[in-house]
Design a protein around this nucleic acid. Structure first.
Length: 288
DNA sequence: GCCCAGGGAATCG
DNA sequence: CGATTCCATGGG
């Protein structure tokens, strides 16, 4: 991968495994808008960033070299060797097909606080609604930046009460969001240290927050705390796993986790992303 | 164990 | 078209 700065733009070339559409549409993040074909604006890390992908280059703007190196290289996981991961996972024929279907997926390294709240909101919810609720919360509690509102930090969201969160359409998750803000501001859950813990320890700590079960915890671990061995298992992943690996039989999530970890180890989280995108696009295992 | 919570999208009849 | 289902978690 190479990049150069020109007129407040970063132009990335000679890259592999990067498709902005697949990265953003695979269910790992929610604060982005599609502006055109392979043209997006994303609101993250206290910034508003435009991304346009062409044949053999990706343009990030407004963005200088300093900001790119400080924030976005890590955010887009650009230093990781995805060719190596894909080669390793391709010994499994099912995952191999899933990879061929979406070779440009990357797992973002998101901001843990925003990621946690986003996945609390995601429970029992659909992507368009999740995006709407997060947008409402940002507009009510976050800081304005250009045409957009940034996601509120902990102190800003601490001001939220049940009524205001209900008016953001958070529904029954409002009390969960308040418990997360409360426990984190008191230091009972420490997101800044969570990536240093084992996945198991960090999961347990996250699950001490009301409304954070295994699924929400695993999404936070994988998408913001660098725990690539976890295997977030929503209905789609459960169905695609049962379809391909368990003879279509209803299988406990524990057993699916065990299978994923034994077969894919520290790459289980990557396998999950390829399988999720594959399952949703082809509606594999979907209820008729 | 079972139902409900708030809500709109998706799917059904 | 209206009716039903979906979704992840905790509480009653």
């Amino acid at each position: 991968m190479k990049y150069t700065e020109k007129d407040e733009k970063i132009i990335m070339t000679e890259f592999d495994s990067f498709d902005i559409e697949e990265i953003l549409e695979c269910g790992q993040c929610f604060r982005f808008n599609k502006l055109g074909n392979k043209e997006y604006v994303i609101i993250a890390m206290k910034k508003v960033l435009h991304i346009t992908q062409e044949e053999d280059k990706v343009i990030f703007y407004p963005c200088g070299k300093n900001e790119f190196e400080k924030i976005w290289i890590n955010y887009f996981d650009l230093e990781r060797d995805y060719m190596k991961i894909k080669a390793a996972l391709s010994s499994d024929n099912v995952v191999k097909n899933a990879i061929e279907y979406a070779q440009g997926i990357r797992i973002l390294n998101q901001e843990p606080w925003e990621c946690l709240i986003s996945f609390i909101i995601s429970q029992n919810n659909r992507i368009p609604m999740i995006k709407q609720v997060i947008k409402n919360i940002s507009e009510m509690f976050g800081e304005k930046s250009g045409d957009y509102f940034l996601f509120p930090d902990i102190d800003e969201l601490k001001k939220a009460d049940t009524d205001s969160l209900m008016s953001c359409k958070a529904g029954f998750r409002a009390k969960y969001i308040m418990d997360a803000a409360d426990k984190i501001s008191k230091g009972q859950v420490d997101l800044s240290r969570a990536s240093a813990l084992t996945a198991e320890q960090a999961r347990e700590e996250l699950m001490s927050i009301k409304g954070v079960g295994p699924k929400v915890a695993d999404c936070t671990l994988l998408f913001s705390l660098g725990k690539s061995e976890v295997f977030p298992t929503d209905v789609w992943v459960k169905r695609v796993m049962e379809y391909f690996y368990f003879g279509g039989k209803d299988t406990p999530i524990k057993e699916i986790h065990k299978y994923a970890y034994e077969n894919w180890g520290n790459y289980a989280g990557f396998a999950q992303q390829y399988l999720f995108y594959y399952a949703r696009s082809l509606k594999i295992g979907a209820k008729k």
